[in-house]
Amino acid sequence: MRLNIYRYDPERGDPPRMQAYDVQPEAGDKKLLDLLMRLRVQDDSLSFRRSCREGVCGSDAMNINGRNGLACLTALDGLKEPIVLRPLPGFPVIRDLVVDMTQFFAHYHSIRPWLINDEPLPERERLQTPTERERLDGLYECILCACCSAFCPSYWWNPDKFIGPSGLLQAYRFIADSRDTASAERLDFLDDVYRLYRCRTIMNCTEVCPKGLSPSHAIERIRLALLQRSS
């Protein structure tokens, strides 16, 4: 199969370029990552992140034929050749397909991604009804791969100020949690022209989420929660 891959070597300082590769898939190779692993044997200077190879760690997010996705979940079947691989759009490139996620995780950190509850600790755990637990479905599964934020035009224009779809989905995950008592503070934090309201509901995030989640829906719920609170 033919691939065309974005190469950048910070030590050489040359501008990024595209490099063509030919690699023969072998029996059992089903996903793009399988092919990339073979390619790495051929050219050990090619850099990309990967770990679990089954869509849980969120390391191998990249731009595949113009759309963001995880190499380990992208089937080779049906991929148009040459397969064009580029780093996540809008993210600083450290080397080849490896991008700098510092800002992305800073946004994640800013929404305080942990349970806040100042009520006295119960003897055992904080209980939830099955209905309360269900509210977290479609939210807790996020693996922070950044496919969504790196496909969001609003995030491209204001990556330093807009929290981005991933961070906002995570923010709503805690707002929706019945065990969290800081909803009001969380909403206060989000009511900002940049942090939340750069979203224009383009829905590129939901289009590319490899876990089938809908950050745009979470953002819609945050806006409604803010509206409800102020009326």
């Binding site: 910070p10 990024p16 600083p92 035009p153 289009e207």
Partner: peptide, 24 residues
């Protein structure tokens, strides 16, 4: 700190936009 500014890939012509982005 990296010695120089890192490149960023953001060539809109090379990104495949979904229908919602076109409408937007």
């Amino acid at each position: 700190k990296p010695p120089h500014r890192l490149p960023v890939f953001l060539n809109l012509a090379q990104i495949r936009f979904p229908i919602g982005a076109i409408a937007s």
